[in-house]
Design a protein around this nucleic acid. Structure first.
Lengths: 113, 113
DNA sequence: CGCAACTGCAACCGTCAGGTTGCAGTTACG
DNA sequence: CGTAACTGCAACCTGACGGTTGCAGTTGCG
């Protein structure tokens, strides 16, 4: 479940998958139920659910004869924190470079390599 | 630049693109420079840069005869906040459903549709 | 001034992801 | 107890994506 960043982002990179996540965000649902509300086949839904489950964005739970899936908000929160951290690091580095550029140093501070 | 959520996530869904972003996070660089540090052609880099620029994750800047690109941390931060918000909403809804299930109501509260 | 280096555009290619249909197996509802 | 509904697996198709090469056009460094 320690899915690498690009992988979980890729999972979130498909519109249909977001459709599914949105519906699941409203409450637990089975693959068949989802297939009934979306314009794709049950099998396609199944593949998407598998992808989402692999990166920890949803969990499955046997309920009676059907398998219901639920959205895991915590997983999305974790991703959000990770992205935020990275974004901040970019900003601070950018700022440091700008400071170097302002301050008249010995040579021209070139950062292209 | 109001790139929809799945689109910007898709942009972040490619490993090579993360390579590029990481390098750009260290400081502004040109396409050729990036191509020299990564195991792909300059043209491939160019396509990736275009994708990243379209979703606002990087910006371009003419510097001398070359075009340098810089990572936009704010964009990533915005995405992070959006994801966090959604994740929280999932959790609260889940909680409400659980409450309903605990409380002995008139009928069995079924949320599969 | 001339050459080297960077950019932009276009054509082309292989792979894989998203989708479909079809079928077989289980399991709860009536 | 029978049948309807849900699941799982497999084969197959197609388009888009990540990658390549090739070429033409600028622009600045020595």
């Amino acid at each position: 479940m320690t899915a690498t960043l690009p992988v979980v982002c890729a999972a979130l990179g498909d519109p249909t998958r977001w459709e599914i996540l949105t519906r699941l965000g409203e409450g637990p649902k089975s693959a068949s139920t989802l297939a009934r509300m979306l314009p794709v086949s049950r099998q396609a839904i199944g593949k998407h659910l598998e992808v989402l489950r692999e990166v920890g964005l949803i969990e499955s739970e046997q309920r009676g004869r059907e398998v219901v899936y639920l959205a895991v908000g915590a997983r999305l929160g974790a991703l959000a924190r990770e992205l935020d951290r990275i974004g901040r690091s970019w900003e601070t580095r950018l700022l440091r470079l700008k400071e170097l550029a302002e301050r008249p140093g010995p040579a021209a501070p070139e950062a292209s390599e």
